[in-house]
Design a protein around this nucleic acid. Sequence first.
DNA 1: AATTCTGCCAACCGCCAATGA
DNA 2: GTCATTGGCGGTTGGCAGAAT
Length: 326
Amino acid sequence: MGRQPCCDKVGLKKGPWTVEEDKKLINFILTNGHCCWRALPKLSGLLRCGKSCRLRWINYLRPDLKRGLLSEYEEQMVIDLHAQLGNRWSKIASHLPGRTDNEIKNHWNTHIKKKLRKMGIDPLTHKPLSEQEGSQQARETKKSLVPHDDKNTKQDQEDQQSKDNQEPHQLGQDLEKTSSPIFSDGFSIDEVPLLNPNEIFMDISSSHHHTNDDNANINISNSTTSPSASSSSTSSCLSSVLPSDEFSKFLDEMEILDLKWLSSDDSSGDTMNFKDNTVDTTNLWDINDLSSLDLLMNDHNDGFVGNGNGCSRMVLDQDSWTFDLL
DNA sequence: AATTCTGCCAACCGCCAATGA
DNA sequence: GTCATTGGCGGTTGGCAGAAT
């Protein structure tokens, strides 16, 4: 016999999450981790599908998330990575600590696409739009042989775009297999350290934004103990790969997550407010939760580690930091 | 002031590879 | 070895907020 279905979907709640539900989810995961998403709703008393819980946690509640608009540097990273990988958002997101695939996908669709078109670049092929005209013309000729309604023209174009979108995928795959894709700012992806999450250590400061000086608190290190880390020659430190000024810029742009929670005084309604890069979740993380978090931060060498100067070190590996508890 | 339009984004849906009974 | 389930992914949508009319 196989397993039981993930959820029967009967009597399960859908739609926006309430503060109460968020609290329950955070409380449960902080206390127990997520042994398996399917069981989590029942155990935590949530009337949600496990899938929904997972999505909510990963895209919204995880404490290592960065909030706010993508910086210009992050945007450029997304564009470069999209040129190599196509719409593989999770792969792209894995290169941007604290960003989720959903967030990047949304940002791409709402901001970057427009920006690129404005610049005369086809967001799908990353080539100048003028170069597309020839092939576009051919498509139009081909299409004109097929009867269709005028109102479908836009849809047809969208469909064609979807097909075109496969090209970068293939390109990316080919590049992954064969050559070293080159970033527009001059380094090849082969030279970019494909860090595993457990290789990234970040010191969390209570300050809101990091200046270059604050970068001293950030330590992106190479874990020599991780077998996967030695899977390729790419596991060198970012700091050794990027020119020092680029590295500083990277660190500066990567405003590390801020665990300073705003007062809930100004929150209203059931949804949470985000201001800049801080998250108003004091109404979610009660004092016990925070002490749980403190435990996580201080009791596990692989998790959060106090560094004696008011900063805590965090491993950007949710599996490590939450589930070492188990 | 009321209505319509547009942009944004959280959340859902459906598919698929990996996993386990 | 087969098949059901899980977790993860990418595409799409619904609803809210602000802008435009």
